[in-house]
Design a protein around this nucleic acid. Structure first.
Lengths: 162, 162
DNA sequence: ACCAAATGGTACTAAATTGGTTCTAATTAG
DNA sequence: CTAATTAGAACCAATTTAGTACCATTTGGT
C-alpha cells in the first residue's frame, strides 16, 4: 500500500514522546497511557526498538526505557529499519537480488533502486529532534473534550483506544 | 511494509513493455504471455490503468490497449496513483485529515507529510521513457534456459508462473 | 528471602489486506 | 451470427498485520 505499518507509526510516536525529555527513563506503561495505546502493543514496539539499539532497556522493578542516543542522532530511517521488513526497497525485486534473470540489464529494477534510494535519504534526513521542535504555533482555541482529556502528552493521535 | 503492491509492480512492467513500441496496440493476452503473468491479472491491471486514463482501450474483436500518452509523458507516480490506494501518503494520518485532535500543531504529521512529498517527487521524476532506455549494456554471456525461453519480452521478472 | 514491578521472548489468534480467479455483460470485426 | 476482446463486479484463498497472552527473567524494596 506504500504505507509504513502501524507498528512503525507507533514507533515514531513512542520515540518522539521519549524525545521530549531525552534523558528521562519511561516505562512501557507510562508511554502507552500518555499515547492512549495498548500497553502490550507499546511493549512490543519498545522491545523491537531495544533489539535494534535505538532505546536502552533497564530491567527489573523500576525499570524502563530510555533513548540510547540524542534525538539529533536518531532518524526516522532508524525507526523504519527497526520495525519494517528488511531489506529496504519499494519493490521486492529492487530489495533482493537474484529474483530475475535479466537483473543486470533491467532498467526497471535499476530505476526502482534509484527511487528507493531517494526515499531512504528522505527518511534519513528527518531526525527525532525535528519531530519535537514545535515551530508552528497551535492556533486551535478550544480543543474538544476528548483531546483535552489526553492533554498529558504533547502529541496524541486518535487511534483505536484498545 | 513500505512496498508498492504487486499489482502496482505489474503495472510498471506492463506499461514498460508497452512503451517499447509506444504506438502499437497490445491485447491483454499478448502482454500476459510476454511477461509470463496470468491473463486475468494483467487484465485487471490494464482495466485500472484504463480507468485512470493511462492507456486507451479498444473494445471488441481485434481490440486491445495502447498507451494514451508518450512514454516521456507518463511517470511512475501516474502508475502508482492508478493502482495504489488513494490518497497518497506514507502514514494514514499524513494522507487523511481529521484523524487526530492535535493535527494543527503536530510536527509528526507535518514531517510525515514532508517525507511523503519527497517520495512523491521521486516517483514523478521517473518517466516511462527512462524505463526502456537501456543505457547500461547487459554483460551476461549466456542467459539460463528459463530466461532464454522468455526472450520475447525485453524485461521479464521471475514471478509465479500462474 | 520474598514479592512486586518491570522487561524479554515466543507463540498464537483474529482481522485486514491483497492477489488472483470467475462470471456475466458489452462491444466490434469479419 | 460468432469469435475475440474489454468492462466490471463479486468472490475466494492466501498472506500479512495487529494485537494478545503467556511464561521467563531481572531487579529494587521490604
Amino acid at each position: 500500500m506504500l504505507r509504513i505499518s502501524k507498528l512503525t507509526d507507533y514507533g515514531t510516536l513512542v520515540m518522539t514522546h521519549m524525545a521530549v525529555f531525552p534523558d528521562r527513563q519511561y516505562s512501557a506503561n507510562e508511554i502507552a497511557t500518555a499515547l492512549s495505546l495498548g500497553v502490550p502493543t507499546v511493549s512490543k514496539v519498545l522491545k523491537a526498538l531495544t533489539r535494534h539499539g535505538l532505546v536502552t532497556s533497564i530491567r527489573g522493578s523500576r525499570g524502563g526505557y530510555a533513548l540510547s542516543r540524542l534525538p539529533e542522532q536518531i532518524t526516522i530511517a532508524d525507526i523504519v529499519d527497526a520495525l519494517e521488513d528488511q531489506p529496504f526497497g519499494l519493490t521486492e525485486c529492487s530489495a533482493t537480488a537474484g529474483l530475475c534473470n535479466y537483473e543486470d540489464g533491467c532498467l526497471i529494477r535499476t530505476n526502482w533502486q534509484r527511487i528507493s534510494q531517494i526515499v531512504r535519504h528522505a527518511l534519513e534526513e528527518v531526525r527525532l529532534a525535528d519531530m519535537v521542535r514545535r515551530n508552528v504555533p497551535n492556533r486551535k482555541i478550544a480543543p474538544p473534550l476528548e483531546a483535552r482529556a489526553m492533554k498529558g502528552s504533547p502529541m496524541v493521535v486518535k487511534r483505536p483506544a484498545q
